[in-house]
Protein backbone atom coordinates (compact mmCIF):
# COMPACT_ATOMS: atom_id res chain seq x y z
CA UNK A 1 0.00 0.00 0.00
CA UNK A 2 2.72 2.35 1.09
CA UNK A 3 4.66 1.57 -2.05
CA UNK A 4 1.60 2.29 -4.17
CA UNK A 5 1.06 5.67 -2.59
CA UNK A 6 4.72 6.43 -3.04
CA UNK A 7 4.49 5.35 -6.66
CA UNK A 8 1.48 7.49 -7.31
CA UNK A 9 3.19 10.38 -5.64
CA UNK A 10 6.26 9.86 -7.79
CA UNK A 11 4.14 9.61 -10.89
CA UNK A 12 2.41 12.84 -9.97
CA UNK A 13 5.73 14.57 -9.34
CA UNK A 14 7.15 13.34 -12.58
CA UNK A 15 4.11 14.26 -14.65
CA UNK A 16 4.19 17.67 -13.08
CA UNK A 17 7.88 18.08 -13.75
CA UNK A 18 7.66 16.93 -17.35
CA UNK A 19 4.87 19.37 -18.01
CA UNK A 20 6.83 22.07 -16.22
CA UNK A 21 9.93 21.34 -18.26
CA UNK A 22 7.91 21.32 -21.43
CA UNK A 23 9.48 17.99 -22.36
CA UNK A 24 8.26 16.05 -25.34
CA UNK A 25 7.50 13.02 -23.21
CA UNK A 26 4.17 11.30 -23.44
CA UNK A 27 1.97 13.27 -21.11
CA UNK A 28 -0.25 10.35 -20.17
CA UNK A 29 -0.13 9.28 -16.56
CA UNK A 30 1.59 5.95 -16.06
CA UNK A 31 0.77 4.02 -12.92
CA UNK A 32 2.75 0.93 -12.00
CA UNK A 33 1.13 -2.34 -13.01
CA UNK A 34 0.89 -5.60 -11.10
CA UNK A 35 0.02 -8.01 -13.90
CA UNK A 36 3.23 -8.37 -15.91
CA UNK A 37 2.98 -11.74 -17.69
CA UNK A 38 6.32 -13.04 -16.39
CA UNK A 39 7.69 -13.35 -12.85
CA UNK A 40 10.92 -11.53 -13.61
CA UNK A 41 12.62 -9.73 -16.44
CA UNK A 42 16.17 -10.31 -17.64
CA UNK A 43 17.80 -7.68 -19.85
CA UNK A 44 20.70 -9.01 -21.90
CA UNK A 45 23.28 -6.33 -22.71
CA UNK A 46 25.53 -7.33 -25.64
CA UNK A 47 27.89 -4.30 -25.59
CA UNK A 48 30.67 -4.40 -23.00
CA UNK A 49 30.03 -3.92 -19.29
CA UNK A 50 30.61 -0.38 -18.10
CA UNK A 51 30.01 1.06 -21.57
CA UNK A 52 27.35 3.66 -22.35
CA UNK A 53 24.58 1.16 -23.09
CA UNK A 54 25.25 -0.82 -19.91
CA UNK A 55 25.43 2.25 -17.72
CA UNK A 56 22.26 3.78 -19.13
CA UNK A 57 20.23 0.58 -18.85
CA UNK A 58 21.36 0.08 -15.27
CA UNK A 59 20.17 3.61 -14.55
CA UNK A 60 16.76 2.90 -16.10
CA UNK A 61 16.09 -0.45 -14.44
CA UNK A 62 15.16 0.63 -10.89
CA UNK A 63 12.28 2.71 -12.25
CA UNK A 64 11.28 0.02 -14.77
CA UNK A 65 11.22 -2.47 -11.91
CA UNK A 66 8.97 -0.16 -9.97
CA UNK A 67 6.57 0.09 -12.90
CA UNK A 68 6.48 -3.58 -13.85
CA UNK A 69 6.38 -4.86 -10.27
CA UNK A 70 8.81 -7.69 -11.07
CA UNK A 71 12.54 -7.90 -10.38
CA UNK A 72 14.81 -6.99 -13.30
CA UNK A 73 18.32 -8.35 -13.72
CA UNK A 74 20.80 -6.90 -16.18
CA UNK A 75 23.08 -9.55 -17.65
CA UNK A 76 26.18 -8.54 -19.62
CA UNK A 77 26.84 -10.95 -22.43
CA UNK A 78 29.52 -9.09 -24.28
CA UNK A 79 32.10 -10.27 -26.74
CA UNK A 80 32.20 -11.12 -30.39
CA UNK A 81 31.33 -7.53 -31.33
CA UNK A 82 27.91 -8.03 -29.67
CA UNK A 83 27.34 -11.30 -31.59
CA UNK A 84 27.39 -13.42 -28.44
CA UNK A 85 24.73 -11.32 -26.76
CA UNK A 86 22.41 -11.30 -29.77
CA UNK A 87 22.82 -15.01 -30.45
CA UNK A 88 21.78 -15.61 -26.83
CA UNK A 89 19.01 -13.00 -26.88
CA UNK A 90 17.37 -14.39 -30.02
CA UNK A 91 17.08 -17.82 -28.39
CA UNK A 92 15.67 -16.54 -25.08
CA UNK A 93 12.20 -17.79 -24.06
CA UNK A 94 9.54 -15.55 -25.62
CA UNK A 95 7.28 -15.35 -22.57
CA UNK A 96 8.18 -11.82 -21.54
CA UNK A 97 10.86 -12.93 -19.10
CA UNK A 98 13.75 -11.85 -21.31
CA UNK A 99 14.57 -8.87 -23.50
CA UNK A 100 17.78 -7.68 -25.13
CA UNK A 101 19.30 -4.23 -25.52
CA UNK A 102 19.07 -3.34 -29.20
CA UNK A 103 22.04 -1.33 -30.43
CA UNK A 104 23.34 -0.39 -33.87
CA UNK A 105 25.96 -3.16 -33.95
CA UNK A 106 23.23 -5.76 -34.52
CA UNK A 107 22.47 -4.31 -37.94
CA UNK A 108 26.04 -4.51 -39.21
CA UNK A 109 26.82 -8.02 -37.95
CA UNK A 110 25.02 -10.05 -40.63
CA UNK A 111 26.75 -8.06 -43.38
CA UNK A 112 30.30 -8.10 -42.08
CA UNK A 113 30.34 -11.59 -40.58
CA UNK A 114 28.70 -14.96 -40.97
CA UNK A 115 26.36 -14.09 -38.09
CA UNK A 116 22.98 -15.55 -38.92
CA UNK A 117 20.66 -13.51 -36.70
CA UNK A 118 19.26 -10.19 -37.88
CA UNK A 119 16.92 -7.69 -36.30
CA UNK A 120 14.11 -9.63 -37.96
CA UNK A 121 14.70 -12.33 -35.34
CA UNK A 122 13.58 -9.88 -32.67
CA UNK A 123 10.47 -7.84 -32.03
CA UNK A 124 11.20 -4.12 -31.55
CA UNK A 125 9.91 -2.71 -28.26
CA UNK A 126 11.12 0.89 -28.14
CA UNK A 127 14.18 3.11 -28.48
CA UNK A 128 15.33 5.32 -25.62
CA UNK A 129 18.59 6.97 -26.65
CA UNK A 130 20.47 7.75 -29.85
CA UNK A 131 23.86 9.23 -30.69
CA UNK A 132 24.67 10.91 -33.95
CA UNK A 133 27.91 11.18 -35.83
CA UNK A 134 29.90 14.38 -36.24
CA UNK A 135 32.71 15.45 -38.50
CA UNK A 136 35.77 16.65 -36.64
CA UNK A 137 39.18 17.69 -37.91
CA UNK A 138 42.42 18.53 -36.08
CA UNK A 139 42.49 22.01 -34.58
CA UNK A 140 45.25 23.26 -36.86
CA UNK A 141 43.62 22.02 -40.10
CA UNK A 142 43.36 24.75 -42.76
CA UNK A 143 39.57 24.51 -43.10
CA UNK A 144 37.07 26.01 -40.67
CA UNK A 145 33.75 25.23 -42.29
CA UNK A 146 32.23 22.06 -43.65
CA UNK A 147 32.06 23.65 -47.11
CA UNK A 148 35.83 24.22 -47.15
CA UNK A 149 36.45 20.68 -45.94
CA UNK A 150 34.13 19.18 -48.57
CA UNK A 151 35.98 21.17 -51.21
CA UNK A 152 39.29 19.92 -49.83
CA UNK A 153 38.02 16.34 -49.91
CA UNK A 154 36.86 16.67 -53.50
CA UNK A 155 40.19 18.11 -54.58
CA UNK A 156 42.31 15.66 -52.59
CA UNK A 157 41.15 12.08 -53.14
CA UNK A 158 42.24 9.77 -50.35
CA UNK A 159 41.34 11.93 -47.33
CA UNK A 160 41.70 9.66 -44.29
CA UNK A 161 38.71 9.12 -41.98
CA UNK A 162 39.17 7.32 -38.66
CA UNK A 163 36.20 5.20 -37.59
CA UNK A 164 35.41 3.11 -34.54
CA UNK A 165 35.71 -0.27 -36.26
CA UNK A 166 35.30 -2.04 -39.54
CA UNK A 167 31.67 -2.28 -40.67
CA UNK A 168 30.52 -0.30 -37.62
CA UNK A 169 27.95 2.48 -37.89
CA UNK A 170 30.56 5.25 -38.11
CA UNK A 171 32.38 3.44 -40.90
CA UNK A 172 29.09 3.23 -42.81
CA UNK A 173 28.39 6.89 -42.08
CA UNK A 174 31.78 7.98 -43.44
CA UNK A 175 31.19 5.92 -46.57
CA UNK A 176 27.77 7.42 -47.09
CA UNK A 177 29.05 10.94 -46.50
CA UNK A 178 31.91 10.45 -48.96
CA UNK A 179 29.56 9.02 -51.56
CA UNK A 180 27.16 11.91 -51.10
CA UNK A 181 29.76 14.62 -51.66
CA UNK A 182 31.48 12.62 -54.39
CA UNK A 183 34.88 12.24 -52.76
CA UNK A 184 37.12 9.25 -52.47
CA UNK A 185 38.21 8.58 -48.89
CA UNK A 186 40.42 6.10 -47.06
CA UNK A 187 38.78 4.50 -44.04
CA UNK A 188 41.09 3.87 -41.09
CA UNK A 189 39.39 1.44 -38.68
CA UNK A 190 40.40 1.90 -35.03
CA UNK A 191 39.55 -0.10 -31.91
CA UNK A 192 36.65 2.06 -30.78
CA UNK A 193 35.48 5.65 -30.97
CA UNK A 194 37.94 6.99 -28.38
CA UNK A 195 41.05 5.69 -30.19
CA UNK A 196 39.63 7.01 -33.48
CA UNK A 197 39.28 10.48 -31.98
CA UNK A 198 42.81 10.21 -30.53
CA UNK A 199 44.20 9.32 -33.96
CA UNK A 200 42.65 12.46 -35.40
CA UNK A 201 43.64 14.68 -32.46
CA UNK A 202 47.25 13.59 -32.99
CA UNK A 203 47.02 14.61 -36.64
CA UNK A 204 47.48 11.06 -37.90
CA UNK A 205 44.34 11.20 -40.02
CA UNK A 206 42.50 14.14 -41.59
CA UNK A 207 39.09 13.58 -40.02
CA UNK A 208 37.06 11.51 -37.59
CA UNK A 209 33.30 11.04 -37.70
CA UNK A 210 32.38 9.36 -34.38
CA UNK A 211 29.69 10.63 -31.99
CA UNK A 212 29.83 13.93 -30.14
CA UNK A 213 30.18 12.09 -26.82
CA UNK A 214 33.33 10.39 -28.08
CA UNK A 215 34.98 13.58 -29.34
CA UNK A 216 33.75 15.82 -26.52
CA UNK A 217 36.95 15.85 -24.44
CA UNK A 218 39.02 16.54 -27.55
CA UNK A 219 36.84 19.38 -28.73
CA UNK A 220 36.74 20.85 -25.24
CA UNK A 221 40.50 20.62 -24.84
CA UNK A 222 41.07 22.32 -28.18
CA UNK A 223 42.57 19.40 -30.04
CA UNK A 224 39.73 18.91 -32.53
CA UNK A 225 37.24 21.24 -34.12
CA UNK A 226 33.77 20.07 -35.01
CA UNK A 227 32.58 21.04 -38.50
CA UNK A 228 29.30 19.18 -38.79
CA UNK A 229 26.85 17.12 -36.78
CA UNK A 230 24.54 14.48 -38.19
CA UNK A 231 21.97 15.00 -35.43
CA UNK A 232 18.47 16.12 -36.43
CA UNK A 233 18.82 19.30 -34.33
CA UNK A 234 21.91 21.31 -33.48
CA UNK A 235 23.72 19.96 -30.42
CA UNK A 236 22.97 21.90 -27.25
CA UNK A 237 26.66 22.00 -26.32
CA UNK A 238 27.87 23.13 -29.73
CA UNK A 239 25.18 25.48 -31.02
CA UNK A 240 27.47 26.91 -33.73
CA UNK A 241 27.99 23.59 -35.47
CA UNK A 242 25.60 23.15 -38.41
CA UNK A 243 23.62 19.93 -38.94
CA UNK A 244 23.83 17.73 -42.02
CA UNK A 245 20.20 18.44 -42.81
CA UNK A 246 20.83 22.18 -42.87
CA UNK A 247 23.66 21.68 -45.31
CA UNK A 248 21.76 19.19 -47.43
CA UNK A 249 24.24 16.41 -46.68
CA UNK A 250 23.10 12.80 -46.37
CA UNK A 251 24.00 10.66 -43.37
CA UNK A 252 21.48 11.58 -40.68
CA UNK A 253 19.95 8.13 -41.19
CA UNK A 254 22.98 6.41 -39.67
CA UNK A 255 22.38 6.50 -35.94
CA UNK A 256 23.90 4.72 -32.98
CA UNK A 257 20.66 3.87 -31.25
CA UNK A 258 19.88 2.21 -27.94
CA UNK A 259 16.57 0.47 -27.47
CA UNK A 260 14.94 -2.75 -26.34
CA UNK A 261 14.27 -5.81 -28.46
CA UNK A 262 12.31 -8.88 -27.44
CA UNK A 263 12.51 -12.47 -28.65
CA UNK A 264 10.45 -12.89 -31.80
CA UNK A 265 7.24 -14.32 -30.32
CA UNK A 266 7.12 -12.17 -27.22
CA UNK A 267 3.45 -11.55 -26.26
CA UNK A 268 2.14 -8.11 -27.25
CA UNK A 269 1.00 -7.51 -23.69
CA UNK A 270 4.56 -7.86 -22.43
CA UNK A 271 5.94 -5.70 -25.25
CA UNK A 272 3.52 -2.92 -24.34
CA UNK A 273 4.34 -3.23 -20.65
CA UNK A 274 8.10 -2.94 -21.21
CA UNK A 275 7.51 0.00 -23.54
CA UNK A 276 5.42 1.73 -20.88
CA UNK A 277 8.00 0.90 -18.21
CA UNK A 278 10.69 2.55 -20.33
CA UNK A 279 8.58 5.68 -20.71
CA UNK A 280 7.91 5.60 -16.97
CA UNK A 281 11.63 5.46 -16.27
CA UNK A 282 12.50 8.15 -18.83
CA UNK A 283 10.00 10.50 -17.20
CA UNK A 284 11.58 10.11 -13.76
CA UNK A 285 13.38 13.27 -12.61
CA UNK A 286 16.26 11.27 -11.14
CA UNK A 287 16.76 9.41 -14.40
CA UNK A 288 16.52 12.66 -16.35
CA UNK A 289 19.13 14.25 -14.14
CA UNK A 290 21.40 11.23 -14.63
CA UNK A 291 20.98 11.33 -18.38
CA UNK A 292 21.64 15.05 -18.59
CA UNK A 293 24.78 14.74 -16.45
CA UNK A 294 26.13 11.99 -18.69
CA UNK A 295 25.22 13.50 -22.03
CA UNK A 296 22.55 10.91 -22.86
CA UNK A 297 19.69 12.46 -24.76
CA UNK A 298 16.14 11.15 -24.57
CA UNK A 299 15.32 9.86 -28.05
CA UNK A 300 12.26 7.81 -27.22
CA UNK A 301 10.66 6.06 -30.18
CA UNK A 302 7.73 3.69 -30.07
CA UNK A 303 7.94 0.22 -31.61
CA UNK A 304 6.63 1.39 -34.97
CA UNK A 305 9.12 4.27 -35.35
CA UNK A 306 11.91 2.11 -33.99
CA UNK A 307 11.23 -0.55 -36.63
CA UNK A 308 11.06 2.11 -39.33
CA UNK A 309 14.47 3.43 -38.29
CA UNK A 310 15.90 -0.11 -38.21
CA UNK A 311 14.59 -0.73 -41.73
CA UNK A 312 16.01 2.51 -43.10
CA UNK A 313 19.39 2.05 -41.51
CA UNK A 314 19.55 -1.59 -42.54
CA UNK A 315 19.08 -0.55 -46.17
CA UNK A 316 21.94 1.97 -45.92
CA UNK A 317 24.24 -0.60 -44.30
CA UNK A 318 23.41 -3.24 -46.91
CA UNK A 319 24.15 -0.77 -49.69
CA UNK A 320 27.41 0.59 -48.23
CA UNK A 321 28.76 -2.80 -47.12
CA UNK A 322 28.41 -4.03 -50.66
CA UNK A 323 30.14 -0.96 -52.08
CA UNK A 324 32.93 -1.24 -49.50
CA UNK A 325 33.32 -4.93 -50.27
CA UNK A 326 33.14 -5.82 -46.59
CA UNK A 327 33.06 -9.16 -44.89
CA UNK A 328 32.77 -12.72 -46.04
CA UNK A 329 30.94 -12.19 -49.28
CA UNK A 330 30.94 -15.91 -49.96
CA UNK A 331 29.26 -16.79 -46.68
Amino acid sequence: MKKRIFGTFLAAVMVFSTIAAGAVMADEELTPIDNYPAKSLQITVPPSAGGGTDVLIRALTPKMEEYLGVPITVVNKSGGGCAIGYAAGAEDPADGSCITAGVAELLGLPYTTSFEYTYHDFVPICNFNSCYGTICVPKNAPYDTIEDFVKYMQENPGTRFANSGIGGPWHILAAEFAEDIGAEVVHVPCDGGGPAATACAGGNVEAVNVSDAEVKTFVDSDLLKMLLTFSPERLAQYPDVPTANEKGIRGADVVVFRGFLGPKDMPQEAVDAVDAATRYALADPGVQEFMAANGFTNNYMNAEDYLKMLDEMDAVIADQCEKLGLGNQDA
Binding site: G79, G80, G81, A83, I84, A87, T112, T113, S114, F115, G165, I166, G167, P189, D191, L326, G327, N328, A331
Partner: peptide, 23 residues
Protein backbone atom coordinates in the same frame (compact mmCIF):
# COMPACT_ATOMS: atom_id res chain seq x y z
CA UNK B 1 38.56 -13.93 -35.19
CA UNK B 2 37.58 -11.17 -37.58
CA UNK B 3 40.58 -9.23 -38.83
CA UNK B 4 39.96 -5.59 -38.10
CA UNK B 5 40.88 -4.11 -41.44
CA UNK B 6 38.77 -6.08 -43.91
CA UNK B 7 36.37 -7.85 -41.50
CA UNK B 8 37.31 -11.29 -42.77
CA UNK B 9 36.57 -14.14 -40.35
CA UNK B 10 39.57 -16.31 -39.60
CA UNK B 11 39.75 -19.67 -37.83
CA UNK B 12 36.40 -19.33 -36.14
CA UNK B 13 34.97 -22.54 -37.62
CA UNK B 14 31.58 -20.90 -37.93
CA UNK B 15 31.36 -20.31 -34.20
CA UNK B 16 29.84 -17.06 -32.99
CA UNK B 17 31.93 -17.33 -29.86
CA UNK B 18 35.23 -17.21 -31.72
CA UNK B 19 34.10 -14.48 -34.08
CA UNK B 20 36.03 -11.67 -32.40
CA UNK B 21 38.86 -13.89 -31.22
CA UNK B 22 39.70 -15.57 -27.93
CA UNK B 23 39.15 -13.67 -24.72
Amino acid sequence: GIDNITAFSRFNFGSVFLMKGLS
